[in-house]
Design a binder for these strands. Structure first.
Lengths: 202, 202
DNA sequence: GTCTATATCCAGATAGAC
DNA sequence: GTCTATCTGGATATAGAC
């Protein structure tokens, strides 16, 4: 029992160190850009030297991959916590709002997860699969509104992506584009209502 | 007269060298990414050594700025050549189609102009002003359709940007998102028709 | 598991001969 | 206006002492 406790303590310490390193990496990435962080800086920020990081991450890219996994996990948690609305449209609205808010509140995290901001880095297949799984619920929520088909999903993704990327790029501290989310969804729903009523009339 | 001709020839040669350097830089950027090009590679591609480039560009960033200026000039030329349609909506449609096609046909050029793909590089204020001017015609074309206001323009930009960025990132050789342009514009126009008819009814 | 020292590599930029 | 040689700096990563 005593031995078991000692082991747990050691491994908890290790995990804490690892978490501290990642936190420092995120902090530097937010200040200087994802591609600009160096192992020296990251190590310095947690009171270590660069070579010591190799006891915690096999390489710099392994560190990026761990950051990527954190981002995916946070997104996944956020989206699964999204409120059910009083009808399927409201539920979808909540999901889109949650996604947009998540992206905008930490642009660097958004970039790491959904753009390719670090030359030479790609997430490992497992972490990438986690990301796809986190996003797959959107299709379900969309289909629950009665809107089906790949085109509709692609169009909705385009609207969402456009809002997020313009917001992050041109007005990171404001709401110039994010405040358009509800209007954009109204527009989107109305478009498919018209399509449906055209089909009925025929 | 003879002296004048000699000078012209020399300066034409210089311009040709400069153009060749930029062409090589674009080529390498398309193959390895904008941020990954090095002066040694660029020089090698035109049969020179790296230091010689400094006779043509004051720095690496100056070279990026020249590339940026070329991209803006090409976009400007393309958009000013866009067809007038039979009505303002058709004209706007043509502009959006032209813009999307321009972005997709050379993703690297699009990235340099509208994203921030090179850490540490920003266009000089003059070149950036050129870019804004090239894009300003969109507002005019939109207002000609009777749709006014900053929100409408922002929403249209979001749709366009979303289509382009998803297309470039996820299906660079295909048309998965670009083929949605017309449907997206139908949706957009219908949205503002409804808004207008609501106003009339009141 | 942290350190110092170092290997290895490659970048942008400059000096000065021709 | 091109070259060779070099400066200066910084990166990831490894070796081995403690």
């Amino acid at each position: 029992m005593l031995a078991r406790t000692a082991v747990d303590t050691r491994s908890a310490r290790r995990d804490a160190t690892r978490a501290g390193i990642l936190e420092a990496a995120w902090d530097l990435a937010r200040r200087h850009g994802l591609a600009a962080i160096t192992l020296r800086e990251v190590a310095g920020a947690v009171g270590m030297r660069a070579p010591s990081l190799y006891k915690h991450f096999a390489s710099k890219n392994a560190m990026y991959d761990a950051m990527y996994a954190q981002a995916v996990e946070q997104l996944s948690a956020r989206l699964s916590r999204r409120r059910q609305g009083r009808d399927p449209r409201a539920t979808l609205r909540n999901r889109v709002r949650a996604f947009v808010a998540f992206c905008v509140e930490d642009p660097v995290r958004y970039q790491l997860m959904l753009e390719r901001p670090v030359p030479g880095f790609e997430p490992t297949p497992e972490t990438y699969r986690m990301a796809l799984a986190a996003l797959s619920g959107t299709r379900t929520d969309l289909e629950a509104t009665g809107i089906t088909g790949a085109r509709a999903l692609d169009l909705m993704r385009a609207i969402t992506t456009g809002i997020v990327s313009l917001q992050v790029a041109n007005d990171p501290a404001g709401t110039r584009w994010t405040r358009l989310v509800d209007e954009a969804l109204d527009m989107f729903f109305a478009h498919y209502e018209r399509a449906a009523s055209r089909r009925v009339r025929r």
